[in-house]
Design a protein around this nucleic acid. Structure first.
Lengths: 166, 166
DNA sequence: GCCATTTCGTTCAAGTTTCAAGAAGTTCTT
DNA sequence: AAGAACTTCTTGAAACTTGAACGAAATGGC
């Protein structure tokens, strides 16, 4: 006699502790970085991330949708965010030549400069919160684990299972 | 001749990958849980967390400040949140008898019921995103790592280093 | 007792995010 | 080539968050 389908599988004690620790760490960290950047660069962490993405793109330019996908935010959210960043002068837009629906977001020189000034403090905060506290093995482990979790939540990139198409 | 104080210590490739993976995983996960709970229980993840905390407190009752501290959110945010949860009927307030400034937040029966109904789906989502994908060693590792990070960001609990005072 | 300081919780205003809807352009189908 | 279906991006309103300022109550000298 096997048990049928019993109710939900609750977390056991250890799992609960792990999950709680994750929740605490992630909220505290996001909070910490948000404050740090708000104080030093007058923008929230997400916006900073957008500038970073743009700074690494060729010509510091990226299509809105791609930027949204890379930064893991909705297109709507990005629209508002870029509007704000545009008002601050860190980013400007231009129409995409090849697709008239499209917009390119472009990191301005001023935006690049803001990034340059904010980056050291931000990196220091990240280092201090994470890398300075973990052994090399733990760092490696963290990377692998987060990779796995992210993959599980990723809506499966187009063609990801057809590598020869990439 | 030792190098003086050279500029900021940037992240190396591996560190960068790890940090990126963390960022992606954590945003995707928070997003995922937010949507799941918004859909199934009509409240954001943070609010659900408040109900959970209350449900575990004696008499399902907690002082506002303590709840805020446990849930890692500001008192201001909690004020708004409880106001909303009160409007929904999941939580009610009462004056604290011993301290006339104080308020107790109390999980109502209705709130408890909502929690009961939402919990299985939520746990399933967490399990599916995390525990189902990690080996036991990875789970253990994750717990330890997050514990360390959280401790580093915790504003050092009062009396934490004076355990006999607790 | 009295005054300075701290704590508790709320409120306001400003900023951010979400959701639903929609305008404009592209692609697919026949 | 027309129309349906889809993609790109924006918009507006509602929900949520933040930080500062605030009133009320408690606390700690002195």
């Amino acid at each position: 006699m096997t048990k049928h389908n019993e109710g939900p599988r609750w977390l056991n004690d250890e799992e609960r502790r792990t999950w709680l620790a994750y929740l605490h760490a992630s909220t505290l960290l996001e909070d910490h970085l948000d404050r740090q950047l708000q104080r030093d660069a007058r923008m929230p962490h997400v916006y900073y991330g957008l500038l970073v993405h743009l700074s690494q793109a060729p010509r510091r330019t990226m299509r809105m949708t791609e930027l949204a996908r890379n930064a893991k935010i909705t297109r709507s959210r990005l629209s508002h965010a870029v509007a704000r960043l545009e008002k601050s002068g860190w980013v400007r837009r231009e129409d995409c030549p090849s697709d008239k629906r499209g917009q390119n977001a472009i990191l301005t020189d001023e935006g690049m400069e803001v990034l340059r000034r904010a980056a050291p403090g931000h990196v220091a905060a990240v280092r201090q919160a994470i890398f300075d506290r973990l052994t090399p093995e733990q760092q490696k482990s963290l990377g692998e684990i987060m990779q796995i979790i992210a993959e599980g939540l990723q809506p499966a990139e187009a063609g990801a299972d057809l590598p020869w198409l990439r």
